[in-house]
């Protein structure tokens, strides 16, 4: 199985060599080194207390990075440096056993995307992991998509696991979270951006000692002002509970309305079977009809 995927992927590589010369070249030159994984972390926000905390998906992304053997893990935060609250949260991340977190120093109102893009074009990471959405602010979830578009990388949404990374062949195999607890296996070309789902393995606890030992390195970044000033016109209020959808009865006559209001739930009585064998048949039929077997 393993061998097959190797050969298959190299073949594809040959086929697309002409078209994706630059990508292949980059993979080849860097192939001797280990896989470079960069995790972008943000400052989370507790849903009730609104206190800053480790963002849950970002912590899971670090957990995935820590569990990948033979990789170089870089953790990066883009935001204002030397902020007390940010530093407490970054210490929480460091407490997972990270030696260092880089902080791209970007003022609050500046655009962090250009800084991130220029940083990544310099550092050439193979894998960029982020959460799906931020826990504060607009949380539109656009950042990984824009990053992948600007860097020309593939994007895999809501992954739970990185099964294997083959830097020589330039491919990685990932598990993606689907509804109803299902998983899909996808193969993706390196380099890629992936967002980490909540179904991924829960992050390890943050240890105080490790947090104290870890370093926060501030990297100066080119700050450019945000281009869209639309945000200033936004009105941000605490979330209102959404009204429940009412059952609208479109009755023309009073009798119809009366019936709709007083009608009992239909079909309350299901089928009752007393014979064991018949019952087993009926259950099997229902299971196959519902396509669960």
């Amino acid at each position: 199985m393993r061998k097959q995927t190797h050969s298959a992927s190299t073949e594809i590589n040959k086929n697309t060599e002409g078209l994706h010369n630059n990508v292949v070249k980059m993979v080849n030159t860097a192939s001797k080194e280990s896989v470079n994984v960069t995790v972008l972390v943000s400052v989370g926000e507790h849903p009730l207390s609104k206190r800053p905390r480790r963002a849950e998906q970002d912590a899971r992304a670090i957990e995935i990075g820590l569990n990948l053997p033979g990789t170089q893990l870089h953790v990066m935060h883009a935001g204002a440096a030397d902020n007390v609250q940010t530093n407490t949260v970054l210490k929480d991340y460091l407490g997972m056993g990270l030696p260092e977190i880089q902080v791209l120093n970007i003022p609050q109102e500046a655009d962090n995307l250009t800084a991130l893009t220029s940083n990544f074009t310099d550092s050439n990471p193979d894998i960029i992991l982020t959460g799906i959405r931020a826990e504060n602010g607009e949380s539109s979830g656009m950042l990984p998509y824009v990053l992948s578009e600007q860097l020309g990388m593939a994007l895999v949404p809501s992954i739970t696991e990185i099964l294997s990374v083959d830097k020589k062949a330039g491919f990685a195999e990932l598990l993606q979270a689907l509804p109803r607890g299902q998983r899909r296996k996808v193969r993706v070309k390196l380099p890629f951006v992936a967002t980490v789902d909540m179904a991924a393995k829960a992050p390890r606890q943050s240890a105080f000692g490790a947090a104290m030992r870890g370093k926060i390195t501030v990297v100066d970044a080119i700050a450019t002002a945000t281009t869209n000033n639309a945000n200033t016109e936004w009105k941000i209020t605490p979330a209102q509970p959404r009204p429940k959808r009412l059952k609208v009865v479109k009755a023309k006559t009073a009798a119809d309305r009366f019936k709709a209001a007083t009608a009992k739930a239909q079909g309350g009585a299901g089928k009752v079977i007393y014979n064991n064998q018949e019952a087993a048949d009926a259950i099997l039929k229902m299971l196959t009809d519902e396509k669960v077997l």
Binding site: P47, S139, S140, A230, P238, R242
Partner: peptide, 28 residues
């Protein structure tokens, strides 16, 4: 860019959930 988690549209204004469901953002 997108407006995500939109749950109300009134003519030119939309209301969407921000901050992972903690706030309502009223915007164009």
């Amino acid at each position: 860019t997108v407006a995500s988690n939109v749950w109300k549209v009134n003519n030119n204004q939309i209301v969407c959930r921000g901050s992972a469901g903690k706030t309502d953002i009223t915007r164009a």
